[in-house]
Design a protein around this nucleic acid. Structure first.
Lengths: 248, 248
DNA sequence: AATTTGCCATGACCCAGATCAACGTCGCGA
DNA sequence: TCGCGACGTTGATCTGGGTCATGGCAAATT
């Protein structure tokens, strides 16, 4: 049997309970590290609402919806996107379990984008006013929010740079592999939850260009591709290509 | 005398004192609105260090410098930039009085870019750990930091989109005019503190393209250009062009 | 006054990636 | 089982904006 196929089935996180985080919770790192894992956590858990599952194609929120809550992905995968005046979709980001959606809505106080499930997905919903209030009493939580905002800002501006299509695709694959690895999956396998066209809309390329570059990377022995399963053969060279975007 | 010339000389803010903000302080909105204008402000002022002036071309900080403080522009203008492996500069942003530099350094804990004065500039320096600590006691300050991060994130991802050179230049001029207007300057005049080449590095275009588009916008009666002074004649049509990037 | 240096403008040409077109494949509902 | 629509690949052609080259101008320097 081919090693690429069926290696990764679906990413999901356990559900957590009144005293434990979902295993991939966006806040767990900050809180557990800081010794908040005892009763203080009750305050955090009490404001969490488990929502979903949303099926593939369903909206979690839409552009201009009033912003009240952040969404942490528990399982599945999500895209956020805007539609410009010509009807062109622009994908802002893909989100995997453990990642947080909605940070770009804080300032406008409305969601500036749609969020759509790429596959069946569940979420933790955090009231933003409640989590802000809690953050004033939990400095590490505040810090974690600052860090996540800052991280997303850095990523957005690096991706905004003037890079070749090869660099973009290499950075996309490398980044995704690292994020899968952060969930405990083998770093060399990436299961794409999105179409070639969605990758293209994210990287500001045409879907044909994605196909061609996947093909070229395959011919150069950088990756193996079977449909939406990608195996990274030469992560070394891929990282070098990605370096201008990912920074390290 | 030509109306474009010498309308805007230099932007600067008064210096503030122990109980008053600089008139354009990045935090003044949040704090004054929230009724913090009495003794609580002392805590904020006490952690501020006035630095500068830096002359044109001088670095405020450099890539990989450890991140300890945010810088608010008091007067002058600044660019932040990265240099990629081919030696190409990429400008991340321009900053005017009242704006805050360094938010993208929180997550990596090092500055991911250089900051260089475009003209003689002064700053307020805020220790980040001190301001975070204070933010736990001043919810509106925390909120203001969240909002500024979120705002910059939104701007970065809109600029990252797939837009024509015309749209980019229109958005650049419109945005700058709005930010000048926020300082109380007439909205129709923009004084560019940066070269054509720097505009190009910011918008991911060639400097020749900036020249050509300024020329075309002039011929179409959208703007008047004299060196680095720009007068916006038809802000209506310019905003329509910019709409896909600026959103409103 | 002459020279250098940085900045800006404009024409000629080129290229990375978009667009257009054709076709193959897969999954799914009737 | 068939048909249909979404998805992916590949080839041919086009184009927006990049690159290269030239020249002008103004401030700084000699």
């Amino acid at each position: 049997m081919n090693p690429v196929q069926n290696v990764i089935h679906a990413i999901s996180a356990d559900d957590g309970d009144a005293l434990h985080f979902c295993s991939t919770c966006a806040f767990s790192g900050a809180c557990i590290d800081a010794g908040y894992d005892k009763p203080a956590l009750r305050d955090l858990h009490v404001m969490i609402e488990h929502v979903g599952p949303y099926r593939a194609g369903e909206h979690i929120f839409r552009t201009n919806d009033p912003f009240r809550a952040l969404y942490a992905v528990r399982s599945g995968a999500v895209k956020t996107l805007t539609v410009d005046t010509n009807g062109n979709e622009q994908i802002l980001g893909f989100y995997l379990p453990g990642e947080l959606i909605g940070l770009n809505a804080i300032y406008p106080e409305r969601f500036p984008c749609d969020a759509v499930a790429l596959e069946s997905s569940k979420f933790c919903r955090f009231s933003f006013s409640a989590i802000s209030a809690l953050a004033t009493r939990m400095p590490m939580l505040q810090q974690q929010l600052f860090r996540m905002l800052s991280r997303e800002l850095g990523m957005a501006s690096r991706l905004a740079g003037d890079h070749s299509a090869d660099e973009r695709v290499a950075a996309f694959l490398t980044d995704l592999a690292q994020r899968f690895a952060a969930q405990g999956f083998p770093e060399r396998y990436v299961r794409l939850a999105m179409t070639r066209n969605e990758i293209a809309e994210y990287l500001r390329l045409a879907s044909e260009t994605i196909s061609r570059i996947f093909g070229r990377f395959r011919n150069q022995g950088l990756i193996r591709v079977e449909g939406r399963n990608v195996e990274i053969i030469n992560s070394e060279r891929l990282s070098i290509l990605a370096h201008n975007i990912l920074g390290d």
